[in-house]
Design a protein around this nucleic acid. Structure first.
Lengths: 148, 148
DNA sequence: ATATTTTAGTTGCAAATGCAACCAAAAAAA
DNA sequence: TTTTTTTGGTTGCATTTGCAACTAAAATAT
């Protein structure tokens, strides 16, 4: 057996993916910090969809953000602690909690948006658009491959 | 501001990357478990390079696996607990600890190899080779973009 | 109408991670 | 040669996860 034949692909892929992900969040957090704002990557990941969807349920958020229920609960907890969102029970289905941005939450969202934009540019660097497209495409396919 | 214009890319990218990574490790762990073997993704990530490099230092492993020092220390601890590797002080530079596979470690490596192979196939599915190449390429570029 | 199952969200706890402080050995400077 | 700095690795602690168990409400079955 040759010493690096089959070995390389899978190992590297996992390691590369983790490392890229880490670097991205790290950079985002740093950019946020440098702007004097205060929001974690996780919180931001949820804040966006809340803004987009107006008043999503935890479940909606979990599906969009691809995270499990406890994680969503806790992130919402932390956002609520900071008075960025409020939980509102659904009028008809009392199991469902809808999440709504407060004024401060909206403000923070608008403040962070350009930072996200900046981070996005830094992440992309010189990588051509069509490669990014393929990249995202492959990611989606991988996720699909593994959940069926 | 349109409700999904600039927003989508970055958010989704982070979420997709995390999700893909999670699915991959989950599948690997599951396949390993189904084969009656016992090794975590992290341990495997390190075991491979140890096998490849013969007797790498912690530092080597950290660089290859893109993980920090404490993490490597702990993974090696866990491998040592399972008697899969041993730490050997470098003869000349006594700061350096070299990691060497035991017989059991080698055996496990060979046992897990086909499982990794299988997982790799499942991850890739129908994705064409050249897209995978671009994918890995973009990952490397992103990491590079963010560490300079 | 009552009992059972499913769904939405929460909580608790054990394990993993990240950071900073730390130790020991080697290299560089004084 | 002695002191200072750097390097390789470890440890401790606070924070974050991931899982499984749990509660409450709605949907379904009896």
């Amino acid at each position: 057996m040759s010493k690096d034949a089959s070995l390389k692909f899978h190992m590297n892929l996992g390691m590369l993916i983790r490392s890229a992900h880490n670097s991205m969040t790290e950079r985002f957090v740093q950019n946020v910090f440098n702007s004097g704002l205060d929001i974690s990557m996780d919180q931001w990941m949820v804040l966006g969809p809340i803004w987009q969807l107006e008043s999503p349920s935890h479940k909606d958020l979990g599906e969009i953000c691809l995270r499990d229920k406890p994680t969503i609960t806790r992130i919402i907890d932390s956002l609520e602690d900071k008075s960025l969102v409020v939980r509102v029970s659904d009028q008809i289905d009392h199991r469902i909690k809808r999440v709504v941005l407060t004024k401060a939450g909206k403000q923070l969202f608008y403040d962070v948006l350009p930072i996200m934009e900046k981070t996005r540019e830094e992440v992309r660097g010189e990588i051509p658009e069509e490669q990014i497209e393929i990249f995202k495409n492959v990611l989606s396919k991988i996720i699909k491959n593994l959940n069926s």
